[in-house]
Design a protein around this nucleic acid. Structure first.
Length: 409
RNA sequence: GGACAGGUGGCCGAGUGGUUAAAGGCAGCAGACUGUAAAUCUGCCCGCGCAAGCGUACGCUAGUUCGAAUCUAGCCCUGUCCA
């Protein structure tokens, strides 16, 4: 369908839209007034990762088209301990830890959104503000009548668990009620009219809309993004090496840049539309590049995303490091470094020390396989003693992609 | 509270007394081929040690045994059904 509001048009042409509760309704609303819209985020870690970036970018799009982004931090829900994952997510965080996480996460939002008091300035709120005030009996009486178990059982989040015969705790079952309540509360406090989220949030969003309609008679809207996976089917933002964190102190800019630089050919166009502000014509040109030429598009992608999330400076340094390291065979300043003591260090120990390998045993195996090079010369003796002359630097590499700088210590 | 089933390496999943650091698959890492991509083929894939070797590991604890992931007891956890 064609949209009249710039918001919906932008979201549509850039590939953010999976489902909308009432496409015409929200389009009409966005065409005539400032729409405050929110997305909820978890506060279980000191940083969000790339998996949340689509949502953050949607808030950015909201603001770009003249609307008001509301960032909702799940401080209240985090207090309970999000039960959706398996064992690790069972941990319950202290209020102090949650507060620290929220402060840390906020730094990324500040790069991508403009905060303030103006009508289209972004605001950040913590759902703990209202959730922790709730009394159980009160909640049951006011909200309880609007939910039927029959209906709740039909939601995918619940249904899938039951079908797979996986446990679903009462706590988790209640999660959707709290999330629904969030939407209603935001509608009352901030005049929020739109909730966005990943496609897995559809049920929660719809519940919030229904609850608010029944309790207050207010009409709200919901919009979800497609579930983002990489071309080979993996969830975005998680690699075997760990999550791709948005915060600098969780993941160095160089590694962040490399994540995008190494993306699958098939993902380039999609990612450029979702995660950069580049004009669509420019993206069309980039994704049309063929063969090795697509690498140029990947560099642009890495530059742009790193610029947005980490700043110009970080993006430039990471790009320069990549250029000199890969193309020039030299050394970039952004690479991990290791100070080598005067008496030298064994090759295997050096590999582990710079983080190439998890253990000396693994390092030895890799060395034996001929994967490790010093100054681009393969070395196959794990006991080889590396020394660095005073003031000089040497290059340590494992495979094509892992490089580090050795300094004299 | 009761009956039954089950808990194995990042995940899935074989294994019912020694030859099992534990088949196979997935994921991952490296090599070859390339384009810092994908696909494919090959190798690797608990830790320490230069090495010989040692230490840990099959939910937890205690036991049987020359020897246990495998047998016994108790406990914990999960699922299904019953109350």
């Amino acid at each position: 369908m064609t949209y009249t509001s710039s918001l919906l048009r932008l979201l549509d042409e850039r590939g953010y839209i999976h489902q909308i509760t009432d496409a015409q309704g929200i389009d009409a609303l966005a065409a005539k007034q400032v729409v405050p819209g929110y997305i909820g985020f978890d506060a279980t870690a000191p940083s969000l990762h790339v998996g949340s970036l689509v949502q953050i970018m949607m808030l950015r799009r909201l603001q770009q088209t003249g609307h008001k982004p509301i960032v909702v931090m799940g401080g209240g829900t985090t207090k309970i301990g999000d039960p959706s994952g398996k064992d690790e997510s069972r941990k319950m965080l202290t209020p102090e830890a949650i507060g620290a996480n929220i402060a840390s996460i906020r730094t990324v939002f500040e790069r991508l959104l403009t905060f303030g008091d103006g009508p289209t300035d972004a605001v950040m709120v913590d759902n703990d503000e209202w959730l922790s005030q709730l009394g159980y009996i009160e909640l049951l009486r006011t909200v309880g009548p609007h939910f039927t178990i029959n209906r709740m059982l039909t939601f995918d989040s619940v249904k899938l668990r039951l079908e797979r015969e996986q446990p679903l705790t009462f706590l988790e079952f209640n999660y959707m009620i709290l999330q629904a309540y969030d939407f209603r509360e935001l509608s009352r406090r901030q005049g929020c009219r739109l909730q966005m989220g990943g496609s897995d949030q559809w049920g929660n969003i719809v519940n919030g809309i229904e609850l608010t309609r029944r309790m207050d008679g207010t009409e709200l809207f919901g919009l979800t993004t497609p579930l983002l996976t990489t071309a080979d089917g993996a969830k975005m933002g998680k690699t075997a090496a760990g999550a791709v964190w948005l915060n600098e102190d969780q993941l160095p800019a160089y590694d962040f840049w490399q994540y995008w630089r190494n993306c699958d050919d098939r993902d380039v166009g999609r990612f450029l539309r979702l995660f950069t502000d580049l004009p669509l014509e420019e993206i069309a040109r980039l994704e049309a590049l063929e063969g090795a030429g697509i690498n140029d598009a990947k560099v642009v992608l890495a530059n742009e995303v790193t610029k947005l999330c980490r700043g110009e400076e970080a993006a430039r340094t990471a790009a320069e490091t990549a250029l000199t390291t890969f193309a020039g065979g030299g050394l970039g300043q952004d690479l991990p470094t290791l100070e080598v003591p005067a008496e030298g260090i064994r090759l295997a120990a050096a590999c582990t020390a710079v983080g190439f390998t998890a253990s000396n045993g693994e390092a030895k195996r890799k060395i034996g396989e001929g994967a490790v090079r010093i100054d681009d010369e393969p070395v196959t003796d794990p006991a080889f003693l590396i020394t660095v002359d005073g003031g000089a630097t040497r290059k340590l590499s494992l495979g094509r992609k892992k490089h580090a700088v050795l300094l004299s210590g």
